[in-house]
Design a protein around this nucleic acid. Structure first.
Lengths: 187, 187
DNA sequence: ACATTTACATGATGGGCATCATATTTAGAA
DNA sequence: TTCTAAATATGATGCCCATCATGTAAATGT
């Protein structure tokens, strides 16, 4: 049954939303096209009316979710605290798409890599803007170093099956970033 | 044809070596059992004589490769430089198994998670030992923060399809770690 | 109101892959 | 040397999945 233009647009949005959650939760490979469609409330048949392939879905989902990822207000410390919280670690499906999906990007199509690259570029720029008190070189270094440590810590914490060590990775990374920022700022 | 005990042990080692390279290069899902066996010089049939399942292979490969990963001498700065080099970024198959495989561990069996956890625990301890001049709290924080930033930076750099930005992530993370270590040491 | 287009459903199709069954050959024990 | 058990090879089996073919009904334009 055909649906209205706006219905179709909304359906497409729902598919992308659902796909982004499933992909973050289970990884690209472990999620089937049929599973995405079912979770969005459809059967698998309509899929190729919206996307030309699963790879296309992956690329478009990345563009969709990375565009939506606003990454907090202007307070870097609050953002870091939230990012390195057990709550974020335990909420991959609803958490940062970079932390959940970057590592898999290496094995994806050029379109997917390109979407992720642009997402990372703007994320780094965004973090840089939250450090107006630093001179440009310090700002850039801090933004990139911070971001690498944040993403790395969440990925490590999610891999570790010992809760104490996992918590410690988050906590110590937070402390490490904190001293890094403070000391540069105080110079 | 049956082979000698030692032959079999060597064959098993070769399978694990080859599997570790393939997994690091292409990810667990993208590598088939038959592909591993073929790369090791066998057909797929003998596989279940060595391992009870593909999941078992994954767990044993992790234990194997993480035990072998010695991670350099006592000079942390040299290790960081090497780790954050374009050469290491471009050599996933022969590079650090953590950088190549941690993110996927989340979706693997408990045995695999456990092997990775022990690998990470000893890696963090090892890095800590390269910082004897620091007091224990600083040492722990530095080891974990450093390691998170190193792993995160390599994962990010491998995902980014713009060579300039990818190089910059490595370079700036190296600088960020360097200032972090220097400033703590100089206190 | 009617014709046409189209969004989604149902139901193939074909390929890849993990795993199993069986055969073969040879190491190791007796 | 002979017998047995084990290591690997060859060849199924069955499942899951991406993609395609076709049907159906409703929306849009005339």
């Amino acid at each position: 049954m055909k649906v209205s233009r706006e219905q179709m647009a909304e359906n497409r949005r729902r598919i992308l939303d659902v796909a982004s959650r499933l992909f973050r939760d289970k990884g690209f490979d472990a999620v089937s096209v049929a599973e995405v469609m079912k979770a969005a409330g459809f059967t698998h048949g309509g899929f190729y009316g919206h996307f030309s392939s699963k790879d296309d879905l992956i690329a478009q989902t990345l563009a969709h979710v990375l565009a939506a990822d606003s990454s907090g207000g202007g307070d870097l410390r609050a953002y870091v605290d939230d990012y390195l919280s057990p709550r974020h670690r335990d909420n991959a499906a609803g958490g940062c798409p970079t932390a959940g999906l970057v590592a898999d990007i290496r094995h994806q199509t050029p379109a997917a890599r390109s979407a992720m690259t642009e997402g990372l570029r703007s994320q780094i720029d965004h973090i840089g803007k939250t450090l107006p008190e630093l001179d440009p070189a310090d700002r850039r270094r801090t933004a990139i170093g911070c971001w690498a440590a944040m993403v790395g810590a969440v990925i490590l914490a999610r891999a570790i099956d010992d809760p104490a060590l996992s918590d410690e990775v988050l906590e110590q990374t937070r402390a490490w970033i904190d001293t890094g920022i403070s000391q540069v700022s105080a110079r």
